[in-house]
Amino acid sequence: MELTDIIKAENIVSQKSKLITENVMHYCPGCTHGVVHKLLAEIIEELDIQEKTIGVSPVGCAVFAYNYLDIDWSQAAHGRAPAVATAISRLQPEKYVFTYQGDGDLASIGCAEIMHACNRGENIVVIFVNNAIYGMTGGQMSPTTLLGQVTSTTPHGRDEKLNGFPIKITELLAQLDGTCYVTRQSADTPGAIRKTKKAITKAFQNTRLAKGVSIVEIVGTCSSGWKMSPVASNEWMREHMFKKYPIGDIKDI
């Protein structure tokens, strides 16, 4: 049997979503963004909403998300994605509008925008990738950096007296009446990835029901920023990040 006999359409059991472009991803080995992008592409394709989906990319590592997912995109100023998404959703209510934000973007500079978009109950989905560091700018402390965690701006470890405490922003957002579904997931094992896919699918389905903001936080790794191998990153995340940021649904109404 030749290789060409095997590579046939009828033999395909899994393949790249057609929404993933041919562009070479800039993400580092071990980065969670690639997995989340793949899930988004699959979900948008499976729900058949490519023509109706508009993404809002952040400032941070995912700023170039528009290069990888073949949908219409707006690139927002740092932290402002929820404000941008608010207007897109209000002016095109039939669309599926989502923001894709990191912890620096959402939980630090964009605190006001995410809080008030959630409080207004905008009909949007928020994909929040929390890797406890500013990846794009070279590994500085973020609002979700753990106590004791070493970053380039906490070279001696995060000290609560100097830097304050890691913020559990997702729990805060769950307190707001405008959010309908708030969950925290991860992408470190095939099982976790399946659960994350289910959560994001549900978030997009909520848009059709116009129930308010659906937030899916994905606790992720930043091997380059953390200065660990991808495998060690996953182990460190499970040991430390999951304690502070426990996996599971926070709100579902």
């Binding site: 927002a76 100023a77 402002r80 941008v84 608010t86 207007a87 897109i88 008030h116």
Partner: peptide
């Protein structure tokens, strides 16, 4: 919620 949010909503609408 702020002038910053307002102009970014304008950005979104203009998009």
């Amino acid at each position: 919620e702020s002038e910053i949010a307002a102009i970014n909503m304008v950005y979104g609408g203009a998009c």
